[in-house]
């Protein structure tokens, strides 16, 4: 299990953000992306998750390996915590949801409707979804937003267990999770210098 990015360039809304990024991440390791707002962290994560094609370069991953978690948790307000989680478990092949609930300290809230959860509880439910996917590569966009200190520790434990089990994780976060396995990557040096830089064959170049 390995994630390999080769000479990646990606763009958001036609504006190139990142160029010339290459890296390899092996099983059991985590990568934390850093950089100022708008530097392309979300765009890079969406590219790794396969939601948008890279402008240039390749993403090498085994098929069906990614579990993606974004700013929005994909929760349905009128369904209960257990129903929300059971749905995603069924989509990913039907695992048991009880361990995931326990891990994220949600067991007592299982029958509560998602609309009555606090922001931090919703986030924990969104992260519990990762546990039921049973997928090896976690791609996480700001996973610790609105979590309190105790919940951040819960989440760090979950990531550590995931890595120990042979998984790997790429995340954009500003909080230090205290993960020894994590490598930090500052995206600032990979900022695309001008349209079409980094071998990107941008159409707009044809006019310039």
């Amino acid at each position: 299990m390995e994630l390999r990015l080769t000479d990646i360039a990606c763009a958001r809304g036609g504006v190139p953000l990142i160029a010339g990024l290459s890296l390899t991440l092996r099983a059991g390791h985590a990568l934390v992306l850093r950089g100022p707002n708008g530097c392309g962290k979300t765009t890079l994560l969406r590219t790794i998750a396969g939601l948008q094609p890279p402008l240039a370069g390749t993403v090498d991953l085994p098929p069906d390996a990614v579990a993606y978690a974004a700013h929005a948790d994909g929760l349905k307000a009128t369904l209960s915590v257990a129903e929300n989680l059971r749905f995603w478990a069924a989509i990913y092949g039907g695992g048991d949801i009880a361990p995931a609930l326990a891990r994220m300290n949600l067991t007592d809230l299982a029958e509560r409707a998602a609309q009555n959860l606090s922001a931090g509880q919703k986030r924990r439910l969104g992260l519990a979804r990762l546990l039921v996917t049973a997928r090896p590569v976690w791609v996480l966009d700001e996973p610790t937003v609105s979590l309190d200190a105790a919940s951040v520790a819960l989440f760090a434990d979950a990531v550590r267990a995931h890595l120990a089990g042979g998984g790997l994780a790429v995340m954009a976060t500003h909080i230090d999770l205290g993960l020894d396995e994590a490598r930090t990557l500052d995206l600032t040096p990979y900022k695309a210098q001008r349209a079409g830089a980094g071998g990107a064959d941008s159409f707009d170049e044809a006019f310039l």
Binding site: G14, A192, Q193, R194, A195, F203, D204, F207, L208
Partner: peptide, 16 residues
């Protein structure tokens, strides 16, 4: 095409 060219120039302006 001219509209696209204008957009491309603006994008380049913003990046530098």
């Amino acid at each position: 095409i001219r509209a696209r060219r204008m957009k491309a120039l603006l994008t380049r302006e913003r990046m530098n």
